[in-house]
Amino acid sequence: MKRTVPLLISAVTGFILIGTAFIPMFEEWGNDAMAWFNLLAAFAFILGGGNLLKMQLQKISAQQAGWGYAAVTLIAFFVTLFVGLAKVGVHPNAKFPEFSWSGNYLEVGSAFWWFFEYIFTPLSATMFALLAFYISSAAFRAFRAKNTEATILLIIAVIVLLGRTYASEWLTGGFPNEPIFGEGGITYSDFKLDHLSQIIMDDFTTPGMRAIKIGIALGVASTSLKVLLGVDRSYLGSDQEA
């Protein structure tokens, strides 16, 4: 029950979905499976919330260091959950005004919208904005031309960084559109930084990324097969679980 049933479930589901690409009869089954998959994904949000709750409560009850912050997390969690589920400040759908619960839970002006707009948005956006500072510090301390490979990486980075701004026009905008040798060949303007960075992206980054993609695709295919055939059972965890 603990291992055989899950192995069977994953194999049947997986092979039905693989079959949708080849057998028309499987298409409808595949769509049903995807609809259930999406529902489980929504329940995963609830599982995530429940897990957070469990961890924070454990922290508070054990009076671990920083348990006050755990309490702050819980308060923020419950207040947001309440205003979202209770549709606080939401008006009904204008087509059906007698149905008070028919409105959009994220209506502009509602309490849940307020939490999103004025708390979630600035906090998440600023968290990511911090990365600009850390990348600049890393550029100063870590990006060293220690060998040929690192030197290539840095030179390319500099060309693309300049080529993607107006600096390319300032530095190389004056390169004439005249052939270096012969007619119809390479011109001086081909060496403008914006053009060089485009060539780097199209002719050098594309093959590099393409090879990585091919490698990943083969990796995904083999891992998927291992899971479906029951060779890889790591997702089932150990038998010691309660």
């Binding site: 994904a41 929504a42 329940f43 995963a44 949000f45 609830i46 995530g48 919330g49 923020a76 969690f77 419950f78 207040v79 947001t80 959950l81 979202g84 589920l85 839970y105 994220l106 849940f112 939490f115 999103f116 979630f120």
Partner: peptide
């Protein structure tokens, strides 16, 4: 909580 509410 936001993810939970939206998922719900």
């Amino acid at each position: 909580a936001y993810a939970m509410v939206v998922g719900f």
